[in-house]
Amino acid sequence: MNALEIKGISKSFGQKKVLDDISFQVPENCVFGFIGANGAGKTTTMKMILGLLKPDNGTGSIIACGEKVAFGSSKTNRLIGYLPDVPEFYGYMRPKEYLSLCAEIAGLDKKSIKGRINELLELVGLSDANKKIGGYSRGMKQRLGVAQALISEPKLLICDEPTSALDPIGRKEILDILRQIKGKATVVFSTHILADVERICDRVAVLNKGKIALESAIGELKVDRKSKSISLEFDKEVDADEVARVLASKGMAPAKCEIAERSIESLFLEAVK
C-alpha cells in the first residue's frame, strides 16, 4: 500500500503556476526525499497534503494513508505528522507542557500522554531539557518539532526542509532521528541538500519548475547510472602516482587519480568534537 498518492495536482498563485500537474506515490515505511531548488514548490505541495492550501479547482487528488485529503478539514491530520521548516512554539512553555498541549489536541488517551511524551523526548534527545522553549537554539527547536509531529504516532511524517537552517551537528542529529523513525512511519522530507538525501533516503522525487523531473528508488538510480569512479581510503599517507602505477600494473589504469581533499564537514565535526 502507498502511504501517499498524489495524482495530477496543479496550483497557481495569481498568474504564477507553481505546480503543474504533478503526480507521485510514496510506498509505506520508506524515507522519501523530495528534492528541489528554493521556490520549486516543495512547501506548496506539503501544505496541500496537510489541507492547509487548496489545490486548483478540478485538479487531481491527494490520498494520504488511504484517505482523501480535503482543504480546511482536519480529518486526515490525525494520520499525518508535520514538521514545518521553522517550527514555532509558545516561548513561555516548557517542552513537556507544549507536548502535553499537543497530545490533548491530538486526542491522545489521558493515561498514555505522560509515557508518550517521555518516550519522544528520549528519542529527540531532550529528556533533560526543562527550560522555557523561548531560549532554545534552532537545533533544539527542530528536534522538539520532530517530537510534536510524532505525538499521535502518525503513519506519515512530513518534514519541510528539516535540515536547511541547521549547523552540521544539528543536521546530523535530525537525520539520525529520521532514520530511527523509519519502520514506524513513512517519512517524506523536502530538501535542497543532496548529501542529506544520500544519507537516509530510499526513494527520491525531483521537483523542477513545477513538474516532477525524476522519481525513482535510490538503488535503481545508482544502478541505472553506473558510476565509473571509486573512492579509496588509506590508513596512512600515500602517493597518488604510486597508487595509479599499482593499479595500472593490474590492467586497471585510472583515467584520473589524485589525493582527495578532506571535506570541510569532516574537519568541522572533528574540531568541535
Binding site: L50, L52, S74, K75, N77, R78, I80, G81, Y82, P84, P87, E88, F89, L101, C102, I105, A106, G107, G145, Q148, A149, I151, S152
Partner: peptide, 8 residues
Amino acid sequence: VNLLTKGL
C-alpha cells in the same frame, strides 16, 4: 500551524 495540523 503545529496545532492545526494535529487536527485542531
